[in-house]
Structure formats: structure tokens, C-alpha cells
Simulated assay, not measured.
Amino acid sequence: MAKKKALSKQDILGFYMDDVLSTGQKPHSVFAFAKTHNFEESKFYEFYGSFSGLEKDIFVAFFENTVNALHKSEDYKNFHARNKLLSFYFTFFENLTANRSYVVYALEGHKNKLKSLQVLSELRKHFKNYIGSLDIKTLDLKQEQLDKIQDRGLKESAWFQLLVTMKFWLDDSSSSFEKTDLFIEKSVKASFDLMDTTPLHSLIDLGKFLFKEKVRA
């Protein structure tokens, strides 16, 4: 039988996910994987250097599918940062749920240490860039180094929140994962309430006013 010549990255990702779910383990080698699916081993290396890179890219694919779906929505484009992030969460977890068997396979044994899990390292980069694109309002500290620290802290805390939600979802046994939906609503609201700089700005303005008045006196 002639080897497949037209092969996409999505084909390889699909073959891999099907294999690990059917056998309960990753293929023994790239050669065996290619032979099973009737394509030249060299085609695999056009996309990935190893199964490790492929496994990371599966979670990136979930992210990209989410963002692509969101950007097709005119409503999403007009949302403020809070609702954009909320929409991201719901759509991202819909993608995870559609592929729950694989995600559970990939993460279940490591769900208490997701923060250090290499398979999520590329997702982390993409998600942090996404958070940066939301233009979430933070304090203007008037000092570049402090602003960078604040920005880095915002992205890291957002990433940690996503990991906590993923663990909650892995443990969720409610129908249609309705408890996860509720958790998402409450956690995103709480995080934005904590980041709300309006009260803090008011206190700073009051402090400046009192300071000026004291100086004048």
C-alpha cells in the first residue's frame, strides 16, 4: 500500500491521541507510529522532533481552537477584559471536555503538580501572551521596572488560576461539569474584583490631597 503523502499537523495529532486512548500508552517509537498510520517516518519530523513536542502542541491546539472561535464572534470583540476572559474560560473548557479522555490520560497522574508539568509549558506561554493582549487595567506605577514586575505578577497569577480551574475540572463529577462552570464564574469575578484599581486609585488621590494640604499648612 502506498504511503500517505498529504499529511497535516492535525492528522498527526489526531493519530497520536487515538493511539494513546486505544492502547493506554504512547507509541513505542516514531517508526512504529508512522508504520501504523501508513506514512513515512520523515513526515513526522517535518512537524515535531519528538513525541514530547507533539504532546505539548496538543494543549496549544486546544488553546488555538479556543481563540480562533472567540475571534469569530463580533460580541467578543466588544467585550471588556473580564467578559473576554470569561468567554475564553468557557470555550477553552468546552474544548477540553470534547477531548476529556485524552486530557485525563495526559494530566490525571500529575494533577497535584500541574504548575511544573512540562506538557503544559507551551500552553503557558500562549496563555500568558493572551492575558497580555486583554489590556487589563492595573496601577500606573510611573516606574518601568515596577510596571514590568506588576505585569509579570498579573500573568503568573492568571496562569495559576487556569491551573487551579483545570484541576477542579479534572475532579468534577457533576453532570455537564456544571460545578466547573460555576467555579469559573466565581473565580474570574473574584480575580477581577481583587484587581479592581478604582478603590485604590481613590485612596491614592486622597493621600495626595491630604499630603498637599499638609504641606500648604
Rank of each mutant, 00 (worst) to 15 (best):
L162G: 02
T138E: 11
N129W: 06
I149H: 10
E122Q: 15
Y130A: 03
L134C: 05
S157H: 02
Q150G: 02
K137N: 09
D140I: 06
K142V: 03
L141Q: 12
G153R: 14
G153L: 10
D140F: 03
E156L: 07
K137P: 02
R152Y: 10
Y130W: 12
G153H: 11
H126S: 13
T138L: 08
D140T: 12
L141K: 10
L154G: 00
R124V: 00
S121T: 08
N129F: 05
D147E: 15
E122A: 14
D140C: 03
L134T: 11
L139W: 06
A158W: 01
L139F: 04
I149N: 09
Q161T: 09
K142Y: 07
E156T: 14
L141W: 05
L141A: 04
L162P: 00
K148D: 09
L141S: 07
G132Y: 06
L141M: 09
Q150C: 03
G132P: 11
G132A: 04
L154N: 00
E144K: 13
S121Y: 05
G132E: 09
Q145H: 12
F127H: 01
F127Q: 00
E122V: 07
R152A: 08
I131A: 03
E144Q: 12
L123D: 02
K148R: 14
K128D: 02
S133E: 14
I136G: 03
I131Y: 03
S133V: 06
R124F: 02
L141D: 09
I131E: 00
S133N: 12
N129T: 15
N129V: 08
Q145L: 07
F160W: 07
Y130I: 05
L154Y: 02
Q150I: 07
L123M: 12
I149S: 07
L146G: 04
L139S: 11
L139N: 10
F127T: 00
W159I: 00
L154E: 00
I136E: 00
K148M: 04
D151Q: 15
L134K: 13
E156M: 07
H126E: 15
S121P: 05
F160R: 15
E144S: 09
K155S: 02
Q145D: 11
A158Y: 03
E156Y: 05
Y130D: 04
D140W: 04
I149F: 06
D135G: 08
G153S: 11
T138Y: 05
D147W: 00
A158K: 00
H126I: 05
H126Y: 14
Q161K: 12
N129L: 10
S121A: 14
L134Q: 13
Q161H: 08
T138G: 06
E122W: 08
I149G: 03
D135R: 15
E156N: 12
H126Q: 15
Q150L: 08
S157Y: 02
A158N: 04
L141T: 11
Q145I: 10
L134N: 05
I149D: 09
L141E: 08
D147H: 08
K142M: 05
F127L: 07
L139I: 13
Q145F: 06
E156F: 04
K155Y: 03
K128G: 01
K137C: 02
K148P: 01
K125V: 14
K128H: 08
K137I: 07
L141Y: 06
K137M: 04
L123G: 01
A158S: 13
I149A: 06
L123V: 04
